[in-house]
Nucleic acid binder design. Structure first.
Length: 261
DNA sequence: ACTAACCTGGTC
DNA sequence: GACCAGGTTAGT
């Protein structure tokens, strides 16, 4: 369930579990993970101490004491779980890190799209990412300039990790609703005021997500303001009805009444 | 800018 | 059985 808030909280949990530990053994349980973490690479993790865990966008980096980095991306369904010594592992475990305190940290992923790669250098990964959405150095003016000339719809542009790192389908959708901007508008056609509103809106949505650790959905219901609310009344109380459209193969929800170009 | 692909599971 | 899924990339 990973977008930036979820990944940030996953990193904090993972850091608490393994930051001062060493990896005793590593196992891959799915062929998709074995493609990058070969038996030889898994064996090379044995005995490595973990220095720290960091995040950029939705990318996670486990820094090892030999300067290598385990680069993990949750994609659609990845998550970390901690397993007590001797306890049963949860379902859908794709990677197990056995720790020197007898516990295990496992990468769970029902859909098996998550990736785990050993890197000598994180620079090539970072080079592909734009600024963090909440980077205070990113001003509305700078954001507006980044959108200049882009003919792609603003909703699709927001999902481009080279533009902003960490914004996913839910927060792009929610952010545009906060900003009252039509998701179909060409990114380059936004006024400075609209660009400012979109940046503020995305940050507001991410802030909401951070406060709930990304856990918007509880049981059958959720607390999204537009996402997954097709046919429901707009929460701006303007009498509009939320519509679902598809952009770039992804669902977008918006209120035709208040989200104007 | 859309489609398929990577994968599996849940829901109508 | 069909369609949906909070991501990303490669190839039209």
């Amino acid at each position: 369930m990973p977008e930036l808030p979820e990944v940030e909280h996953a990193v904090r949990r993972l850091r608490g579990w393994i930051a001062t530990r060493a990896i005793v053994r590593a196992e891959a349980h799915h062929k998709a993970i074995r493609r990058t973490l070969t038996p030889r690479r898994l064996a090379s993790l044995q005995g490595r101490a973990v220095r720290d865990v960091s995040r950029r966008g939705k990318h996670q980096f486990v820094h090892l004491d030999d300067a290598r980095v385990l680069h993990v991306h949750f994609r659609m369904n990845g998550d970390w779980a901690w397993v007590a010594p001797g306890a049963d592992a949860p379902r859908h475990v794709r990677l197990t890190l056995h720790l020197d305190d007898g516990a295990r940290v496992v990468l769970t992923d029902s859909r098996a799209l998550a990736t785990a790669v050993l890197l000598d250098d994180v620079a090539p990964v970072l080079a592909e990412l734009g600024p963090e959405a909440d980077d205070p150095a990113l001003t509305p003016r700078a954001f507006h300039a980044m959108l200049a000339g882009k003919r792609t719809p603003i909703k699709v542009a927001l999902l481009d990790q080279r533009l902003l790192a960490g914004v996913g389908n839910i927060y792009a959708t929610e952010g545009l609703w906060h900003a009252r901007v039509d998701p179909r508008v060409a990114a380059g056609a936004l006024t400075l005021a609209q660009a400012r509103a979109v940046l503020t809106g995305v940050r507001k949505a991410l802030g909401r997500g951070m406060r709930r650790e990304g856990r918007y959905a509880e049981g059958d219901s959720h607390e999204f303001l537009v996402y997954d609310r097709e046919g429901a009344p707009c929460r701006h109380r303007d009498g509009g009805t939320i519509r679902r459209i598809v952009q770039g193969g992804r669902s977008t929800y918006h209120c035709p009444r208040c989200q104007r170009r």
